[in-house]
Design a protein around this nucleic acid. Sequence first.
DNA 1: TCATTAATGTGAATAATCTCACATTAGCGA
DNA 2: TCGCTAATGTGAGATTATTCACATTAATGA
Lengths: 210, 210
Amino acid sequence: MKFAKIPMATINRLSIYMRTLQDLLDEDVDVISSERLAKQCGVNPAQIRKDLAYFGEFGVRGVGYRVNDLVNQIKEILGLQRPWNLAMIGLGNLGSALIRHANFVKHGYVFTAAFDVDPQKVGKRLPTGLIINHVDELEELIKERDVHVGLITTPASEAQSIANQLVLAGINGILNFAPVQIQVPDCCHVENVDFTIKLDSIAYHLSSGV
Amino acid sequence: MKFAKIPMATINRLSIYMRTLQDLLDEDVDVISSERLAKQCGVNPAQIRKDLAYFGEFGVRGVGYRVNDLVNQIKEILGLQRPWNLAMIGLGNLGSALIRHANFVKHGYVFTAAFDVDPQKVGKRLPTGLIINHVDELEELIKERDVHVGLITTPASEAQSIANQLVLAGINGILNFAPVQIQVPDCCHVENVDFTIKLDSIAYHLSSGV
DNA sequence: TCATTAATGTGAATAATCTCACATTAGCGA
DNA sequence: TCGCTAATGTGAGATTATTCACATTAATGA
Ligand SMILES: NC(=O)c1ccc[n+]([C@@H]2O[C@H](COP(=O)([O-])OP(=O)(O)OC[C@H]3O[C@@H](n4cnc5c(N)ncnc54)[C@H](O)[C@@H]3O)[C@@H](O)[C@H]2O)c1
Ligand SMILES: NC(=O)c1ccc[n+]([C@@H]2O[C@H](COP(=O)([O-])OP(=O)(O)OC[C@H]3O[C@@H](n4cnc5c(N)ncnc54)[C@H](O)[C@@H]3O)[C@@H](O)[C@H]2O)c1
């Protein structure tokens, strides 16, 4: 089953499996079957086995998966055995809430740069110790601090312009929180986060006969 | 094409179309073809036509779609022609950032209740004027204020317990920001928001040969 | 050592989703 | 009025994703 094209959905599920497995580790669970893991993750057991089968054989037949090993295997698959450096662009309500959130560090993501245009904010030191720089210094600092991924939390009107600057600075991954579709060259991978889409989906389900 | 089962993916895309169309309205665009809209939304033109075809015929052959009409049609489909009342549970970093965000109101979502357990927070008035109540009063106030959807922004350890309380209070829709899979009866629709999954996906793409 | 067992790994079947290609039709101008 | 044009609406086909079902195999204990 090697070298097949990997479904995007598989990659996303691997993240979910990993989080659940990490919780299980905290509860001192050593081994888990695809059936039990599936129940906790809300998926089909065969789905888990198939997802993993794209990358190798990680289980023990008749036994299940060793939780600790599987976490490491999934980290390896996703490229999370190394730290990733992040830059936040836009330190408003959302950007500030995100950057102080401990969960990122826990998963190997480190903010090594933060940018804004507001003179009130530029120069300030964040709780993490990081200093907010002016967006004019974006290209220089992104290269200097080896930033891999940019998080856009500016107003929507600025998002495309920021994306352009990030691409110019050599960034290949963007997590965009602004509610616009940004255009980038193929070399750059964009993921969008938009909560209101999820709310709309709930509204639809509540309206249309549940 | 009526009365077919509607793909979940279609519902999510309708939200995206709607946002893009609203932007177009602001730019005084009256009419748009599926081709142009598709480009802006990053999808296939036939996809848009098919998505809309599940619900009726909204375009004009040879011309395109009237932007204003289509926005209204999509709102109708998604159940957004009426306001939805939200409750935020957990007014920490994330909850506070979200509740002061103007975008929700713009899309017809109104926070009518906010809950926490922290004595420092309970009783305080938010910028919107809403007062934070103790989570003990959750059931009572949710019924009283006709809340339809609950947003969980408590620590992960509390999320399941809050979900249980929301269900007991009669809530049928939950937007969960805590990084755990919560279990609810079928009558309740849950959507999860987890940014780190998106980051993992970016990490995967950056690692595996781009 | 070898049968038993339990849960994996996977080919095949099914289901869901997307894309193509084109017949259809509203609007427009001659 | 009628033909032309441009873009919709949609059946059929292609693709992608999920689930089933079972052959396979590591561990265990008699
Ligand atoms: N806050 C939320 O809960 C929330 C929810 C969903 C989406 N969003 C989106 O996230 C984005 C940020 O939301 P927010 O509530 O934090 O807004 P905000 O206004 O509080 O913050 C925006 C920040 O971006 C800075 N900024 C503006 N232009 C800039 C530029 N060119 N370069 C760098 N920085 C710049 C501003 O100075 C400000 O600090 C918006 O696009 C919003 O729609 C926010
Ligand atoms: N902040 C982020 O950027 C971010 C990002 C991703 C996910 N999340 C998740 O969102 C959740 C909240 O994150 P945060 O950074 O705002 O945390 P936080 O600690 O700042 O806020 C949590 C709030 O919940 C309240 N709370 C605790 N128990 C409660 C209960 N039983 N009932 C009601 N309120 C209760 C606390 O008093 C606090 O105000 C966490 O699950 C976190 O993992 C946060």
